[in-house]
Amino acid sequence: MTTYVALIRGIGPGDPRKSNESLRGVLESLGYDAVRSVISSGNVVFESDPDDPDAIGDRIEAAWPELRGFTATTIVRSREQLESLISHLPFGDLPHGRESYQLVTFFKHPVATHADPPADMALKVLGLVDGALCTVSDTTVTGTPDAMGWIQRTYTKELTSRTPLTLERILKKMG
Rank of each mutant, 00 (worst) to 15 (best):
E47K: 06
V76M: 05
E47H: 06
Y32G: 01
I60N: 02
R36Y: 12
T74D: 00
Y32D: 05
S37K: 08
S48G: 07
G31W: 07
S29M: 14
R68D: 04
A34C: 10
W64K: 15
S29K: 14
N20S: 08
V26I: 10
R79M: 06
T71G: 13
F46M: 12
E47V: 05
G25C: 10
D52H: 15
R36Q: 12
S22E: 04
F70C: 13
T74P: 03
R79A: 05
P53C: 06
L30E: 02
S48P: 07
N20A: 08
G57V: 09
T74C: 01
R36E: 03
V44D: 09
G69W: 03
I75R: 01
E61G: 10
L67F: 08
I39R: 08
E47C: 11
P50Y: 06
D54I: 10
E28R: 06
S40H: 15
E47T: 12
V26K: 00
S22Q: 06
S41N: 14
R68F: 07
N43T: 02
V26P: 01
V76R: 00
G25Q: 01
I60L: 14
D49V: 12
R59S: 13
A55M: 11
T71L: 12
R24H: 12
L30R: 14
S78A: 09
A34I: 13
G31L: 09
R79N: 08
V45D: 02
D33C: 13
F70P: 11
R77W: 03
F46P: 08
T71A: 13
I75N: 01
R59Y: 02
E61C: 02
I75Q: 05
E47I: 10
F70E: 09
S37T: 09
S78K: 02
A72V: 04
R79E: 10
T71D: 14
V26N: 02
L30M: 10
Q81M: 10
V76D: 04
E21P: 08
S37M: 01
E21G: 11
Q81P: 11
S41A: 04
L27K: 11
R79C: 03
E66I: 11
S40I: 13
S78T: 09
S78Q: 01
A63H: 10
F46I: 05
R24F: 13
I75D: 04
G69S: 07
T73L: 08
I56Q: 04
V45I: 06
S22T: 03
R68G: 08
E80T: 07
P53H: 05
D51F: 11
L30G: 08
D54Y: 10
R24V: 04
W64Y: 10
D49P: 08
V44W: 00
S78L: 03
T73D: 01
Q81C: 02
V76I: 11
D54R: 12
S29Y: 15
S37I: 01
Y32E: 06
V44K: 00
G25M: 01
A72Q: 02
D54H: 14
R24M: 13
L67N: 05
